[in-house]
Amino acid sequence: MHNVRAAVLDDLDALSALLDDYRQFYQQESDLNGVRHFLSQRFGLGDSFILVSEDVEGNVSGFVQLYPGLSTVGLNARWTLNDLYVSSGSRGQGAGRALMDAAATLAREHGVARLVLMTQVENERAQRLYESLGWQRNTAFHSYLLDVNKG
């Protein structure tokens, strides 16, 4: 059983290590200082919700990060579940499921109508988890990206 709770500033070191690992999973260079700065901004600005899971020893073993947003069409709140990561040693023990359940509960408590997420096409393990929790693949819309820093 994993305890899931809101992240606090005292979690910054453990959370930074996890976020750095998460970024490396997505083929980004390790940048622990950059990650720490980014998370410090999130805590300072309060512009995201970060939940952490703790293993049986009380160590932070995973996290989920949600960014609030709005839907013009739905005239309601819609949060983006942008990040989910569980340390390699805690995978397969229910931490990811516990974090996803806690994210849905938090959204309901805030009156959020819908959670949305994107994952890499190759990330089949995550897709199985999402679908087992009732998430549905969006086939009605295409997703586009624009890197505004490239000419």
Results as ranks from 00 to 15, higher is better:
Ala126Met: 02
Asn33Tyr: 04
Thr139His: 14
Val8Trp: 07
Leu39Asn: 00
Ala140Arg: 08
Gly134His: 07
Glu124Met: 14
Arg114Gln: 13
Phe43Val: 00
Leu84Asn: 00
Gln93Cys: 12
Asp11Glu: 07
Arg23Gly: 04
Asn59Asp: 11
Ser90His: 07
Tyr85Glu: 03
Gly94Asp: 04
Leu129Ile: 00
Val8Cys: 14
Pro68His: 00
Gln28Thr: 06
Leu39Trp: 03
Asn76Ile: 08
Leu19Asn: 11
Asp31Asn: 10
Phe141Ser: 12
Ser90Lys: 00
Leu81Thr: 02
Leu145Tyr: 09
Ser87Cys: 11
Gly111His: 10
Tyr85Cys: 01
Met118Pro: 01
Val73Thr: 14
Ile50Asp: 06
Gly89Pro: 01
Leu117Arg: 02
Gly44Leu: 05
Leu19Val: 12
Met1Ala: 13
Gln120Gly: 15
Ser40Glu: 11
Leu115Lys: 01
Ser90Thr: 08
Phe141Met: 10
Gly151Ala: 13
Asp10Met: 11
Met100Thr: 06
Gly111Ala: 15
Ala7Val: 06
Val35Ile: 09
Phe38Asp: 07
Ala14Lys: 04
Leu129Trp: 01
Val4Asn: 01
Asp13Ser: 14
Arg125Leu: 12
Gln28Cys: 12
Gln27Lys: 15
Asp13Phe: 02
Leu15His: 04
Val121Cys: 12
Ser48Asn: 07
Leu81Met: 10
Gly96Pro: 00
Ser87Leu: 04
Val52Asp: 00
Arg91Asn: 07
Asp147His: 08
Asp101Ile: 09
Asn82Lys: 07
Ala14Met: 06
Gly94Lys: 01
Met1Thr: 05
Asp31Lys: 00
Phe63Asn: 01
Glu131Ile: 08
Arg23Ser: 06
Phe25Ala: 08
Gly89Trp: 03
Val121Ser: 15
Ala14Phe: 00
Gln127Val: 09
Gln93Trp: 01
Asn3Cys: 15
Asp10Glu: 14
Glu124Leu: 14
Gly46Ala: 08
Asn149Val: 02
Leu75Thr: 13
Leu145Asn: 13
Leu115Glu: 03
Val112Pro: 11
Val52Lys: 09
Met100Asn: 02
Ser53Arg: 08
Leu146Ala: 09
Arg137Ser: 12
Val35Cys: 04
Val52Ala: 05
Val112Arg: 04
Ser88Asp: 14
Gln24Met: 13
Ala104Asp: 07
Asp55Thr: 05
Leu70Glu: 11
Asp13Ile: 10
Gln120Ser: 14
Leu145Trp: 09
